[in-house]
């Protein structure tokens, strides 16, 4: 698989390590009343869709940036990639 890095162009997926669903960027507020339950959901539960999936990849053997890659889990087709920092600045998903 080739990941279209927004700054570096097409890069081999082997240069990256995989973390998981992009929703992991949105950590619950630890001061919430229900923080314990919210963190249990955050740490352990996943949507795990068959189809389009937004997910976090770390460019470990490259520029060490975090990307949000949009990929189809039924075909492995990569539909896009953006810097995670841009996604986060863009507001809550």
């Amino acid at each position: 698989m080739l990941i279209p890095h927004p700054l570096l162009g097409l890069r081999d997926a082997q240069e990256f390590t995989y973390l998981g669903d992009a929703s992991l960027m949105h950590r619950p507020d630890p001061a919430r009343e229900d923080a314990v339950a919210a963190f249990a959901d955050y740490v352990f539960l996943r949507d795990n869709p068959a189809g389009v999936h937004r997910e976090l990849w770390f460019h470990e053997a490259g520029d060490r940036s975090w990307l949000v890659v949009t990929r189809d889990t039924t075909t492995h087709e990569i539909l896009g990639a953006e810097l995670a920092s841009d996604v986060k600045l863009g507001g809550v998903q």
């Binding site: 998981g20 959901d41 996943r46 949507d47 795990n48 068959a50």
Partner: peptide, 18 residues
């Protein structure tokens, strides 16, 4: 393999990735 897809039809999220 497809647990998340089937259980989503019952409104459940699972501690599973495929």
């Amino acid at each position: 393999g497809n647990s998340s897809r089937v259980m989503a039809m019952a409104g459940m999220r699972l501690p599973i990735e495929s």
